[in-house]
Simulated scan of single mutants.
Amino acid sequence: MHAYRCHGPVRVLVEADAPVSGHVADESGTEVARFEAVPEGGAAFVEFQPPRLGRYRVMADGVGARVATVDYREEPYFTADDLRAYDDGSKLSEDVSDAFIEAVRDHVEAVFDRAAGTPFVACGAFERTMGTGSARIRTARPMPIRAVRVLVDGREVEGASARGMGFDMPAPVPRGSRVELWYEHGYEDPPAALLHNALVYANSIVGSPSVNPRATGAQAEFGYMRFAVAGKDGATGIPEVDAFLSSDPSKGGFGVRRAVVA
């Protein structure tokens, strides 16, 4: 599930018939919180405040007893109210819950991130690497924004600055040193066109489709119409949205690489 810093503490639903305890760990495996939950009606909520952006595992006590994985981000691409206002009631009846819209939003964010090669809001990441004798550390994820925490052989290092596809350290990192890096990456300021394109795609996948989703075209009054196909023509099959996700600025693209979605 996705959760957002602008919404405050994270709440995770836990299905249980008896009191449950456990812990929350970040991507490095470091425990950042513990919890105890008393269920009512077979479920309870675990609440915790992540110390930084990134992915967290909520684990119940017991071997392999994972409850949930949370991707803690800066902000959502859109809100339930945004989609309801955009749709204007044509698909979103009163029976469509905010929880359903939020599930659609999770899907939209995942598709956009993969197709564009980067998230459109600040997200967190953790990496382990080795020093090379250089002050330069490259990251696996593009568009690093800032280093949140850096450990070199277990010692805190401050002053790393983002540049290009990585970070410049304040001093060369000895060859073979173990580097642990928590950092933020993506767009610090989302493109203005993000909201519109995210709503266009979200609206296309809610409600009942007006055509068979397997159809590639249809006979119309003035000839045969060919449909754009997600995966074949782009990540979403919607030309303006796929142009936005592309890495071609001349098409209005904001992606860093073109991902092929089969």
Rank of each mutant, 00 (worst) to 15 (best):
A135T: 06
A135I: 06
K232R: 15
R84F: 08
D95K: 14
A99W: 07
S246G: 08
A37P: 04
L53C: 02
W182Q: 00
S204A: 15
D106A: 13
D98M: 01
A259S: 15
P239R: 05
G131C: 11
F126E: 04
D248W: 03
R57M: 03
A235H: 10
V261I: 15
A162V: 00
H196N: 08
E184Y: 00
T79W: 07
Y183D: 00
R138I: 06
V38W: 07
V211Y: 11
G64S: 05
P239W: 09
W182H: 04
G166A: 02
A16P: 02
A202H: 05
T30I: 02
A171T: 08
F167V: 07
A259W: 13
A99M: 05
G159P: 02
N197F: 03
D81H: 11
A215I: 06
E188G: 05
G159M: 07
G154W: 06
N212I: 04
V211N: 14
R11Y: 02
A218S: 15
A230G: 15
R214A: 15
F167T: 05
G22C: 12
Y224C: 00
D153W: 02
R136P: 07
A80T: 14
T129C: 15
G89W: 10
D242M: 02
R84G: 12
N197C: 09
V150N: 04
V63Q: 09
E74F: 04
L195V: 06
A135L: 10
F222Y: 14
P174E: 15
F227C: 10
Q49D: 07
R141I: 01
P119L: 07
A85T: 12
D26Y: 00
V12L: 10
A162G: 00
P142W: 01
V63H: 09
P76W: 09
P213A: 01
E94S: 12
Y56V: 03
A192T: 03
A192K: 04
P19D: 09
R226T: 15
R138P: 04
G253E: 10
E156V: 14
A60D: 10
F244I: 03
R136S: 13
Y86I: 05
H7N: 13
R226P: 04
G159D: 03
S246I: 03
P51V: 02
Y224A: 04
H7L: 07
V148K: 00
G64E: 11
P172I: 05
